[in-house]
């Protein structure tokens, strides 16, 4: 069976890549709301203290300030935990960022239940639904360090707001260093014919293990990384729909309004297929990341179980 390597958390990769970009982009201003050591925006602060603003524990104010900076020609990158940033900054993102379509960038860290022991109040599990609800937003979930290195520089060129989701724990290494990914273009990380698992972020590693398990049972499974939820990759979905018998969406997010709901909408338009969805339906609890992923059905074994049921449904 596949030996998944775990490396740098995507939040740390974010801090590192942003700091490199700061060198050639003097218009980048980084903001944080008293979580810079956790989001790793403190790397940027250490290198460019004059272009770093800690607004205090005041996420709504931070998003508003980012709007003013963006409206004045700066390129703000504002970070906090995903839940605080998207929930507490939501109306400011709607009125002062999305509505005027400003080039402001937001990074929500500690997404999903894999943050572990801190528990539900700190877990960002609605962040993607909120960000995707906003017209004009680009929403990305880099899976690992290489994905961050490839995707974050492209964010600078996007002519509208962007939301970037990062995680707390070490990420499964999906891509080799130097891999080129494109915002808006899903990536096939494993080929297969019968079932496509459409996923992103931390769930790619679990899905790959699940795919290996299923292959041992004779199923052929493709895994696709939809690192860009918005705008969703229509040609990618067409490829998937036309070359699979069923689709399983897997996400570390609430099922309502997440990746699965977006993909289902497009699959329904292109070529309706049997589908199923692995994700969260409620607030979780404290525990180790590993325990929580198992307990809340996001482990490779759970993914394989749901996939098996879906595939059996096809045969009957």
């Amino acid at each position: 069976m596949r030996d998944i390597k775990f490396s740098k958390a995507t939040r740390q990769a974010y801090g590192e890549v942003l700091t490199v970009l700061g060198e050639t982009h003097p218009e980048i201003i980084v903001l944080d709301a008293d979580l810079s050591k956790s989001t790793y925006s403190n790397y940027f602060q250490a290198r460019y203290p004059e272009r770093f603003i800690n607004v205090g524990i005041a996420e709504g104010n931070m998003v508003g300030i980012a709007a003013g900076l963006a409206a004045s020609g700066k390129q703000p990158f504002a970070s906090s935990f995903a839940t605080f940033l998207m929930s507490k900054g939501f109306d400011q993102m709607r009125q002062s960022i999305a509505y005027p379509n400003l080039k402001a960038r937001f990074c929500g860290s500690h997404a999903g239940i894999s943050i572990g022991e801190d528990g539900p109040s700190q877990m960002g599990i609605e962040d993607l639904a909120l960000a995707c609800a906003l017209p004009g937003f680009t929403v990305i979930v880099p899976a690992d360090e290489a994905a961050m290195q490839s995707l974050l520089p492209q964010v600078l060129e996007i002519n509208g707001p962007v939301y970037i989701r990062t995680g707390r724990i070490k990420s499964a290494v999906i891509y080799e260093a130097g891999t080129v990914l494109k915002i808006g273009q899903a990536s096939v990380v494993r080929e297969g014919r019968q079932l496509t698992i459409a996923t992103m972020g931390l769930m790619i590693g679990e899905s790959l293990i699940a795919a290996d398990l299923l292959e041992q049972e004779g199923y052929s499974v493709r895994v696709m990384d939809f690192h860009t939820l918005k705008p969703i990759d229509i040609p990618g979905i067409r490829y998937m729909a036309e070359n699979s018998e069923a689709v399983l969406c897997v996400e570390e997010h609430l099922l309502d309004g997440g990746l699965g709901s977006i993909i289902a909408r497009e699959v329904a338009k292109i070529r309706p297929l049997p589908m199923d969805f692995v994700g969260l339906t409620d607030y979780a609890e404290s525990g180790t990341p590993e325990e929580l992923l198992k307990h809340y059905g996001l482990h490779a074994v759970n993914i394989a179980d749901t996939a098996r049921k879906l595939l059996k449904r096809l045969r009957s």
Binding site: E117, G119, P120, Q122, E285, S286, G287, T288
Partner: peptide, 11 residues
């Protein structure tokens, strides 16, 4: 405290 299933959640 903070263990899976405990009523004593992290918060």
């Amino acid at each position: 405290l903070r263990k899976l299933g405990s009523p004593l959640q992290g918060h």
